[in-house]
Every structure is written in structure tokens, then in C-alpha cells.
């Protein structure tokens, strides 16, 4: 008989009793691993939250796309058809920049102007046809041929549209009001159409206030000719709800009331977090989205 086998009969009772049931499988908890995993998860979550809240501060550059359109309160999705977009790649003459920039020009027509008589705005003429340069050309009787938007000074006095004079007086192109706007005005040249807005929902402002005379501003040229220019010089007000450009749909986080005085101002943020600025190229109010694309126009 093996002595070890015999000695087994004298093992401590506690050890024998313990061997009655199989030991529970030990689940080793590596606290360090758990802590590292938790910290990593928290860091990732924090980064996600930070990214969601962070505003992309992309400086405006000449490469940013700009929409240059004439202001027209009656512009709707149906009127602002992609067929009105003109593709005319060329360089900016006034700014001296030869960098081709992708822009989209969406000329709109006033309600009183027939489509046949309204020429589409050529990007080449945009810088030179700023109404501020030649106020007389923006007269109601002889609207400039290169400016697509007709100033409804006489035809539709009740509709507060953006007249060249109004926009000119509000923000003279010769005197840039703010740095971003001036940069955009000087540098951005609508050379080619890169994208076409399929739908821009712009709700005009107080259309029911036809005869509201703006209080005299500090600029003396608010109303140049009272006889030819009726007292309907109202700031164009646009409520930008959304702008749908192809596969992208941008929505401002809040309804934005845009006035010409807001040129250069940051209007808010698009749904993708990018900042939206108001800008102007040819006397017309536009909205510029930081980055490469425009957002909306007015």
C-alpha cells in the first residue's frame, strides 16, 4: 500500500469538506483594464460631444463659394430654377484675383419684369455692375442691363424688394462695412457654377408694409431721388429657413432675419455646425457659409 495513499485518509477534515463541491470559477476582474476602458470610453464620448458643439472657424477665403443674386422677395423654389444659373468661368477683374472660384449666380426676377426682358446676370458683370458705382444706372426707368433684378420702384411700390439704391445705400460697395464682407467682395469672383441650389426657401420680410419710410440713416444717400424713388426704401428682410443644394440641405438652427446691415455678420450656424455669414458682392445680399459652399441668398 502506498504510504501517500494511506496518508490521504488523515488529511484535514476541512480540506475534505472543501473538496465536496467544485470551486466556483474565479472571474478575475482586472481593475486596471476596467478603469482604462472606462476612461477611454469617457474620452471618446467627450470628444464626440465637443465635436458636436464646436463651431468650425474656417476663415473666409477667395476660394469660398459665394452666391450672388439679386434680391427678390418673390423668389421661391419654383422661380429660382436651376435653369437660371449661368455658368461663366472667368476671373475677377476688380479684385485682381485670378483664382477661379466656384460660384453660383442665381438671378431672380421681379414680379413686374417679364422673363424675356430680364437678362441673366453674367458673373463677369457682377463686379462692374454694382449699383453703387453708378447710381443713375439703377434708376427705375432704365434699369441696368447687367443687373437682372429690376428695381420695382414704380411697378410694385408695395412690395419691399431690394432695390439697387437701397442696397447701395445700406452697404456701399466702395465702403466695406466689415472685414469678412470686404474680403469676400474683393476676393470672390463668380467664375464658375459649381453647384446649383435646387430650392431656396426665402421668406421675405414685411411685405405688408408698403409705404413704410425708413428713418433717415446716417448715410445721406438713402433716398437719392424722391421723385423717381418712392418712399418704399425698406431694408430687405429675409427669413432664411433652409437652402437645399442638391444632396445637401442646410438649415439654419434658427430663423435668421437678414438685413443689408448685417453684411459681414455671422448669422448663425447651419445644421452641420458651420457658421453662416451674410455677405455681398454686387450690392445684393447673400449668405455665405464658411467652407466651400454657399448657403443661401437673398
Amino acid at each position: 500500500m502506498n504510504p501517500l495513499f494511506e496518508a490521504m485518509s488523515h488529511v484535514d477534515d476541512a480540506l475534505i469538506a472543501e473538496a465536496e463541491a467544485p470551486p466556483k470559477k474565479q472571474k478575475r476582474v482586472y481593475w486596471i483594464s476596467v478603469a482604462v476602458s472606462a476612461a477611454t470610453a469617457a474620452a471618446v464620448a467627450g470628444l464626440l460631444v465637443m465635436n458636436a458643439k464646436r463651431t468650425p472657424e474656417i476663415p473666409l477665403s477667395p476660394h469660398n463659394g459665394i452666391v450672388s443674386t439679386q434680391t427678390d422677395p418673390t423668389v421661391t423654389e419654383s422661380t429660382a430654377a436651376p435653369t437660371d444659373i449661368i455658368d461663366a468661368p472667368e476671373t475677377e477683374a476688380s479684385s485682381g484675383s485670378s483664382v477661379p472660384v466656384l460660384t453660383t449666380v442665381i438671378p431672380t426676377t421681379a414680379p413686374t419684369t417679364s422673363p424675356s426682358t430680364v437678362p441673366t446676370t453674367s458673373p463677369t458683370t457682377l463686379p462692374s455692375t454694382v449699383p453703387t458705382a453708378e447710381p443713375s444706372s439703377a434708376a427705375p426707368t432704365e434699369p441696368p442691363a447687367t443687373v437682372p433684378t429690376s428695381a420695382p420702384t414704380t411697378a410694385e411700390p408695395t412690395v419691399p424688394t431690394v432695390s439697387p439704391t437701397a442696397s447701395q445705400t445700406a452697404v456701399p460697395s466702395s465702403e466695406p462695412t466689415s472685414e469678412p464682407a470686404s474680403e469676400l467682395l474683393n476676393s470672390v469672383a463668380p467664375t464658375a457654377v459649381s453647384d446649383s441650389p435646387t430650392a431656396v426657401n426665402i421668406i421675405t420680410g414685411p411685405t405688408t408694409e408698403p409705404n413704410t419710410v425708413d428713418e433717415p440713416t446716417s448715410e445721406p444717400n438713402t433716398v437719392t431721388d424722391p421723385t423717381t424713388e418712392p418712399n418704399i426704401v425698406t431694408d430687405p428682410v429675409f427669413y432664411i429657413e433652409f437652402a437645399d443644394f442638391g444632396e445637401y440641405r442646410y438649415e439654419l438652427q434658427e430663423d435668421v432675419r437678414v438685413t443689408p446691415e448685417m453684411v459681414g455678420d455671422a448669422l448663425g450656424f447651419a445644421m452641420d455646425g458651420r457658421q453662416v455669414f451674410a455677405c455681398r458682392t454686387d450690392g445684393n445680399l447673400i449668405l455665405v457659409r464658411t467652407g466651400a459652399e454657399f448657403l443661401a441668398y437673398g
Binding site: P3, L4, E6, A7, S9, H10, V11, D12, L15
Partner: peptide, 13 residues
């Protein structure tokens, strides 16, 4: 056997 059992106990513990 008792001495061996004691050593066995100590080892197993």
C-alpha cells in the same frame, strides 16, 4: 502516516 498526512495537509493548503 500521520507525519506524511501533516506534510500533505501543509502542501495542499
Amino acid at each position: 502516516a500521520q507525519e506524511l498526512a501533516g506534510a500533505l495537509d501543509r502542501f495542499l493548503k
